[in-house]
């Protein structure tokens, strides 16, 4: 598909440039070795640290493609960690903790979906309610404290385990990406979502169940946000309700946009969102590792640099701007 390929070009080009920059400025970026039974490298760190945003971006792609948005995912992540940590405190098994957390997050996704499809609340408002209230709920569950998970718990394997040298969060994110790609391409789910997001009226007249399609997107989003929250909590062996997932809804939306899915809904690209999420995390890791004259990047510049790179990628993607530039060049010639 040439169309989806062209949308993928820019985030991938930006990613390649970023990696090239690292090859020059911090050569250890590509250093690969084994430590504590798993591959250690800044490249692996990018995937490992980026796993939560990656999971969020996958779900956000479907939600946005169906003509919605979900601002509550960061708060839902905090709820997932809080529920899991509380269940683990009762000496329940890791599986029970994971199941309880995912069930609560699925319910959170369905709550968003029901508010939007059946109560007719605009998506931005409906999910804003859970964004504010959700973090409060997580704080209530944890009493505002950071709840530490016992060092020996099997639950920690989600964040710190490894298989074939790859960290568990990376495998979880890749598995989710694979499963979701299969679900949207092998079943009619992907087609329905694009149709609903592209033209709701036409979809309804064509006999498509618009509500159920939207509801499914939000339910999947809830589950993936829960998974992201579990990865985040297991990674630091603690549920930090105040900070887990904070502002990550914005990173997830950004990843989707960089990946070439339009915020107005319709056509989407899961692969593009993956590239977007990896680009965002590469940028963070690059800033942390970069050295200029023996000094780290001044912390005040972190966000400015991120914004500048994202702006450049978005401008490159804009076909209007490209046309404008071409016209000026022709005029000059």
């Amino acid at each position: 598909m040439p169309d989806s390929m062209s949308r993928l070009v820019w985030p991938l080009a930006a990613l390649a440039l970023l990696l090239a920059f690292n090859a020059v400025v911090s050569p250890s970026f590509f250093h690969l070795h084994f430590a504590e039974g798993r591959l250690a490298s800044p490249l692996i760190d990018v995937l490992n640290q980026g796993a939560p945003v990656l999971l969020l971006a996958l779900g956000m792609t479907l939600v946005i493609a169906a003509g919605g948005i979900d601002l509550s995912v960061g708060a839902v992540m905090a709820i997932a960690g809080a529920v899991a940590a509380r269940v683990l405190e009762t000496d329940a098994s890791a599986a029970a903790a994971v199941a309880a957390a995912l069930a609560v997050c699925l319910a959170a996704g369905l709550w968003n979906g029901l508010l939007i499809t059946f109560a007719g609340v605009p998506p931005i408002v409906a999910t804003l309610i859970l964004m504010v209230a959700g973090r409060g709920i997580a704080q209530l569950i944890t009493d505002g404290q950071i709840i530490t998970v016992e060092p020996g718990s099997a639950f920690l394997a989600i964040g710190r385990g490894a298989l074939l040298g790859l960290p568990a969060p990376v495998l979880i994110a890749l598995a989710a990406a694979g499963a979701l790609s299969a679900a949207v391409r092998l079943t009619s789910l992907g087609l329905f979502i694009e149709s609903v997001g592209g033209n709701e009226e036409a979809s309804r007249h064509a006999g498509l169940d618009v509500r159920s399609t939207r509801l499914a997107a939000y339910a999947i989003m809830g589950l993936l946000a829960g998974l992201a929250g579990l990865v985040d909590a297991a990674d630091i062996a603690a549920a930090d309700a105040n900070n887990s997932g904070l502002y990550l809804e914005l990173d997830a939306i950004l990843a989707v946009v960089i990946g070439g899915t339009a915020l107005t809904g319709g056509r989407f690209s899961l692969l593009g969102s993956l590239a977007g999420a990896i680009l965002i995390q590469s940028l963070s890791t690059t800033i942390l590792m970069a050295q200029f004259g023996g000094r780290s990047v001044p912390v005040e510049l972190n966000l400015v640099i991120k914004a500048a790179v994202v702006l450049i990628v978005c401008l490159l993607q804009s076909s209007e701007l490209r046309r404008l530039l071409l016209r000026t060049r022709r005029a000059v010639a």
Binding site: H31, Q49, I146, D235, S284, I287, L288, M289, N302
Partner: peptide, 19 residues
């Protein structure tokens, strides 16, 4: 670099420093 006073960011920054 900044770890924004949180555990998760402290870990992420330290990982980058160690490498």
């Amino acid at each position: 670099q900044t770890g924004e006073f949180t555990r998760a960011k402290g870990k992420e920054v330290m990982e980058a420093f160690l490498k």
